[in-house]
């Protein structure tokens, strides 16, 4: 029963790659945005906040279609990127990473924002009086103290990216070896007459990945927590 076929391996590795790239690219952006939302007041802040959360409440197929309109070859941004930089998202694994990144973004930003809000601003003030300019206060005080939240956000984002289905399949379709992730492979297998066993194998694999991510983040968070609380 548990012989994973080469096609299944391809889907598994692709999923891991798509989710990892999506998470790693989204994390710095997410940290910057979380900091802005947590620490700065600016015009249009509630609009930005709503936009970040939009993928969470929109039907994924809508997000996928909007991505296709924007980043497709004939889309406004997609056409420009293809003409000027040769970067193509549509029907490529990079497009899957983009879709997963956008879908995962709200889940990634939220814990980071909460943990930045929880950092004692009086410590940041103290760092300032010791000569640290704001960006160094952020790097040496705020970010390390918010680290458990950053890790939590990354794990949530990664889990979401691994499981993403609707936006991805709408935007980049379901091409084996290029855009067929675990989710879309399971979807295809379920629709094939004798695909049940293979589908079940991939279900087990995705459960294992999800559990490993959760256990890993728990371990990191505990270590970080110990470090932060001075023990």
């Amino acid at each position: 029963m548990f012989e994973i076929s080469p096609e299944e391996w391809t889907a598994i590795l692709l999923s891991l790659r798509v989710a990892a790239v999506a998470t790693l690219v989204a994390t710095p952006l997410g940290i910057a945005l979380a900091w802005l939302l947590a620490r700065r007041d600016f015009w249009g802040k509630s609009v930005v906040d709503a936009l970040v959360h939009l993928p969470l409440v929109l039907p994924p197929v809508v997000t996928g279609y909007l991505l296709l309109l924007t980043f497709g070859r004939r889309g406004l941004v997609g056409g420009w990127l293809a003409d000027n930089f040769g970067i193509v998202f549509a029907f490529r694994w990079t497009g899957a990473a983009l879709a997963c990144g956008i879908m995962a973004f709200p889940l990634l930003v939220r814990p980071i924002r909460l943990s930045i809000e929880a950092v004692d601003r009086r410590l940041e003030q103290a760092a300032g009086t010791l000569g640290a300019p704001p960006w160094r206060v952020f790097l040496t005080i705020t970010l390390p103290l918010a680290l458990p939240g950053v890790l939590a956000g990354m794990v949530l984002g990664f889990a979401k990216a691994i499981g993403e289905f609707g936006a991805t399949i709408t935007f980049v379709s379901n091409i084996p070896g290029e855009t067929q992730t675990i989710s879309s492979a399971i979807y295809s297998l379920i629709q094939t007459p004798d695909g049940d066993r293979a589908a079940l194998r991939l279900v087990v694999v995705s459960i294992v990945i999800a559990l490993a991510a959760l256990v890993g983040s728990e371990w990191f968070a505990r270590r970080a927590g110990k470090r932060l609380h001075g023990n």
């Binding site: 009086r122 760092a127 010791l130 300019p133």
Partner: peptide, 27 residues
Amino acid sequence: PHRRRIGYVFQDARLFPHLDIRQNLDY
């Protein structure tokens, strides 16, 4: 504040909890 070169000892010490004492002193 960071360009004033004025030290400040707060009532509540405000040591950085993620750094050890040596790193706090050297900050």
